[in-house]
Amino acid sequence: MTDRPTLDILQLTVTLRGGRKLLRDVSLKVQPGEVRALVGESGAGKSMIGKAVLGILPPNIKPTEGEILLDTHHLNAMTPVTRRRTVSKIASLIPQDPLTALNPVRKIGPQIVDPLIHIHGWSRDKARERARELLDRVQIRNTDRVLQSYPHELSGGMRQRVLIASAFAPSPRLIVADEPTTALDVTVQKQILRLIRELQQETGTAVLFVTHDMGVVAKISQRVSVLFAGRVMEDAATEDVFRNPQHPYTEALIAATPSYSDLNRSFSPVPPALIADLHAKIAAEEAAS
């Protein structure tokens, strides 16, 4: 591990207009070359963290406290224009739903190439060359045909490959993968997951991997942050979390994960009593502070 993290989030609080806090005091680091999983059930705020880093929170949600350091740049202190340019050069996004992540009225080619020209100021030829190279790498045959296609002419799995190629194409130092396999069917999920892991290892890109699936966490990440109600419950090495979960919620999440390799292993949903208990504890803490 090198001296400074690629992403360093310090006590980030994100607030909905009206005052409700969607994230509270969230801190986490992603070291260069590391995959950090963000896990939690829907509504825990895991996607919100990635969006806050990339600057794509909805207009009514704002980061109100804390710091986001992306490769030592203080993002929250920047003007919107500088922030946008800085983030585009360092980070990229693999979105959740490949069906809505490509513009339906534009061909694939420009959708990969134009951002490269915009981000790095490359020539069109160089950007196109890079796009081909990445499409090859994500095992898309017939690269030229795909570049000439509209999104609706490709399958969901193909579109997700295109989006992965597009995310790695500008050689980012950080990739936010926002549940990139959730919208895909199970067989395609496995291939896509393997692809992201391979590319990540080849390029040494740091990844913030948002998921609700502990099985995916085990396969892809070195470290994991467990989120509940906008707070980090546990932050540890993935191995340790599975071997010896420190927080009862983490334990329950692990127990709630079905295993495809061992169908006889039993699994049980996170007990509602535990969730109620956690909410009560949080409410009490908030009342005290």
């Binding site: 990339l54 600057g55 794509i56 909805p58 224009v81 946008r84 340019r85 983030v87 585009s88 050069k89 980070a91 990229s92 996004l93 979105p95 959740q96 739903d97 809505t100 992540a101 490509l102 513009n103 959708q111 951002p115 915009h118 981000i119 989006l163 597009s166």
Partner: peptide, 15 residues
């Protein structure tokens, strides 16, 4: 403007 492809463009640094 709520759809993901517009978010991707924002991440790509477009205003």
């Amino acid at each position: 403007l709520r759809l993901d492809y517009t978010n991707l463009s924002r991440v790509h640094g477009f205003s």
